[in-house]
Design a protein around this nucleic acid. Structure first.
Lengths: 150, 150
DNA sequence: CCTTGACCTCAAGTTGGCTTCAAGTCGTAG
DNA sequence: CTACGACTTGAAGCCAACTTGAGGTCAAGG
């Protein structure tokens, strides 16, 4: 297969060259060679970038993504981890949808100010209580560094 | 009503005092006075913090949240904006759920490596194509500074 | 051969949202 | 009255994920 010039990768991935170089410095991708100075990539890099992209969308940091790849080209994520991530994503998504519902309710609510609408106030309390709990858990996780993985 | 000492606000909001001071410096909240040096807050601050929290959960920056409050105590967000935000949230939530579904599929997929599962590859392409489009839109938004609000 | 322009490197800068630090100030318990 | 400890201040630091800038190199077109 022919190699792709960095400009082609930029075009087809939508990522700027600086980001590609940055990812390379983090060893998330590798360039297959140079043409003069210009990086040339194997076509698989596109798939790999898509994978990285997906990891980001799933809430992973670049460091975590790098760890998933390990030394191999394909990630081979433990299936249990995938289930965990899926659960976390679902719950986050549900939270967002609840919030959306709430915002719609508020938008259509006849009370003059949102702060006078009892439903709004109730949802406000519930939502923030939930997020407060999450914050507390996070802080505990930081104080107890070993058990933090997802 | 009695005022709340900052320590009480810390306890009931779950936010550290440093964050409260930070929010105050951004004029997102106000302290009602001091007891010695200690900030005292009106009880309403709890609600306000919940509101801020909600805004963050909805994807607003602290700056945007401040703008929503304007000079008034209650936000009075234009209802159309709320609908827009709700739509954006829903679509993001749907994306996350799709991702979760995909991860579950992959977890249960019999292919030896994820990269050999055709469904995975297909979803990978679709998802990343979508996010690439979003990226392009964002960059255009930056280049065209005037139309960027939500 | 020479110019051009897209790439290169490395270091430093940016953004958002906080946190941390050193040094200082108070109210309160003893 | 004094010590304690929880608060205060302003400035600086931190983190992730990039981006930007200055100065350099190179392949290709004219």
């Amino acid at each position: 297969m022919k190699l792709l010039d960095i400009s082609e990768v930029v075009a087809s991935s939508g990522l700027p060259a600086s980001t590609l170089r940055y990812y390379e410095s983090l060893r998330l991708i590798t360039s297959a060679g140079r043409h003069g100075l210009r990086r040339q990539y194997e076509p698989e890099v596109i798939q790999r970038l898509a994978l990285i992209d997906m990891g980001r969308a799933a809430g992973l940091s670049l460091g975590e993504i790098g760890a998933l790849f390990g030394r191999k080209a394909t990630p081979d994520i433990p299936r249990e981890d995938l289930h965990q991530r899926a659960l976390a994503l679902d719950s986050e998504a549900r939270g967002m949808m609840a919030l959306a519902t709430m915002m719609r309710h508020v938008a259509d609510c006849p009370a003059a100010s949102h702060m006078e609408c009892p439903s709004f106030l109730k949802l406000l309390r519930v939502g923030s209580a939930h997020r407060a709990r999450v914050r507390v858990r996070k802080r505990q996780a930081v104080r107890t560094p070993s058990r933090g993985r997802v």
